[in-house]
């Protein structure tokens, strides 16, 4: 076992891990942050998406030891300081961007990464960026609407309606 220490949602977290311990396992089982989900475990579905040093990564395909010293952001750190939903989370609720909710933490973290680099994405850009996040309930249209709304844009008519 090796010691690992990182900052998760602004708080220092440390633990003892094996070489093979995945970042997502560390977050869920040692940091107790179970909002980050394991969907496919093969880096296809994006349910495990978190930010490491500001970049979106799939935490099922990164070792905990590779995050030594890193700043990690998960869904648990996304709400506003007063506990209310942030603008992206609220938009997902307003536009029914989730049904079962399993993919939602990854979708919200992916949307946050997109809006940081592209504050006013087009519908096409949103669909392209979310390629690595799979939702089996909504058919994506309401997720795309939610991201458009979160970026302050008109959700009006989107494709395939």
């Amino acid at each position: 076992m090796t010691s690992v220490k990182m900052t998760v949602n602004g708080k220092s977290v440390s633990g003892e891990v094996e070489g093979r311990t995945l970042l997502v396992s560390f977050l869920r089982e040692q940091a107790g942050l179970t909002g980050t989900h394991v969907g496919c475990d093969t880096s296809q579905c994006g349910a495990c998406l978190v930010h490491v040093n500001g970049d979106a990564v799939k935490s099922c395909t990164m070792l905990a030891l590779e995050a030594e010293g890193a700043e990690v952001a998960t869904i648990e750190g996304q709400a506003n300081a007063d506990g209310s939903l942030n603008v992206i989370q609220q938009a997902f609720q307003d536009h029914h961007g989730l049904q079962c909710g399993f993919c939602t933490p990854g979708m919200v973290m992916s949307a946050a990464a997109l809006l940081k680099e592209n504050p006013k994405p087009s519908e096409t850009e949103i669909r392209e960026y979310l390629q690595g996040n799979i939702c089996r309930c909504t058919g994506y249209h309401n997720i795309v609407k939610a991201v458009l709304a979160a970026s302050g844009q008109d959700v009006g008519a989107i494709a395939a309606e």
Partner: peptide, 9 residues
């Protein structure tokens, strides 16, 4: 290549 999260690693 892949998707944005894959491209970051």
């Amino acid at each position: 290549i892949g998707d944005p999260a894959v491209r970051n690693r």
